[in-house]
Write a protein that binds this DNA or RNA. Sequence first.
DNA 1: ACATATCAGT
Length: 457
Amino acid sequence: MMFGGLSTKLLNICIASFCKVRLLEKAEAIIIDGVRLGVIPDVVTYNTLVSAYSRYVSLDSAYSVIHRMKEAGISPNVITYNSLIAGATRDCLLSQSLDLFEEMLQAGIHPDVWSYNILMNCFFKFGKPDEANRIFQDILLSNLASHPATFNIMINGLCTNEYIDNALMLFRNLQRHGFVPQLVTYNILINRLCKARRWRQARTILRELGESDLEPNAITYTTVMKCCFRSKQYDKGLDIMSEMKSKGYAFDSFAYCTVVAALVKTGRIEEANACMEQTMSNGIELDLAAYNTLLNMYCRQGKFEAAYKLLDEIEKGGLLCDKYTHTIIIDGLCKAGNFSGAQHHLHYMKMMGFHENLVALNCMIDGLCKAGHIDRAMELYKSMETKDSVTYTSLVHNLCRAGRFRCASKLMMKCLKDGKKILRATKRAVLRGLRSSGYTDEAKKLQWKIQLARILR
DNA sequence: ACATATCAGT
């Protein structure tokens, strides 16, 4: 009996290490071997599989593990449910996450602090900060010992739900009460502050990380590098890349994509190529985001044959293209002036089950305008179900460039009525254009509308 | 030995 217990423990350790490197078939094979030798899988064995399948394969495949588990006479426990709920949240299935939580309660299983953390993260992900906050308060008031992750999830969730000041206040309050930030806490704050373009505060947090006992990791470096690129400090970003390499940090797919995307964006195609070759020669496995980065690079070089070949390769490799993939192709074709090709791909995308793709249509509009086909762009605009501020900005800006200020003005009023934001520079361009071409009354009217929109907002 | 949070792509 004791021997059996020990063997199951060993089996579980083996399975966990195979799952960690995504060798699920190997993990399954060991279970079969184990059963032959009389080693009985337990709840931990199945939980390990549930987690791995939901993470690396699909939620459905995780459910089939649950089925096998029940057939073997083993009941799911709180960890099983936590894994499933986390998986459903990762797959953007809000109601399924909540149903699973309910099912867990119905089954008489008591949620633990992990369950509440996962649920909190779920609410934040779906833009429900109030519900998330309620759970946070419940955790603090309950007897459950809170875990640093509770605070990290809270800080991150507040930031992604536009409560970045509250997140900072929470962070400082926690520190006053003796909370020692973890590396993830710093990484979360640096990243979110950079995305909000609050460079000064981001630098403060980065400095505090430097003064702490913690060592930055690859995520920290990638985050800071991205911040440099975002604030147009390209050479500084590349310096950080070299520092990261020389200090021996693993240069992963994230790091390479960040660098390649920045190089492509600034037109440094040769360097981007070299960087991408390094990625490949380092044997880094490309996932869809990495393929999309590569695809974007090809498109910007006008290498569409290579791009289409890559598209085939992606699909043959069993990956499904996402909306980013298609948008990159459409944007690339538009920038190259191939509008019939772009139209064709738009149809293809629809055939693949993607319906509205506002970003791709915005790329079409911008491309048409830049190639001087403003009327075609206006036609497309009229046929669109939804528009956003990018749609309007692109059209208004290009109408101004073509000297069609009254048309630009009319469109901008529509935009304001629609409650969409528009760049200040674009507003000024329209007003200046109207005045200089003698439409002073129109300019006054527009200015009034702009002020009105500001008051109403 | 199993479950949560941070970094890349239009």
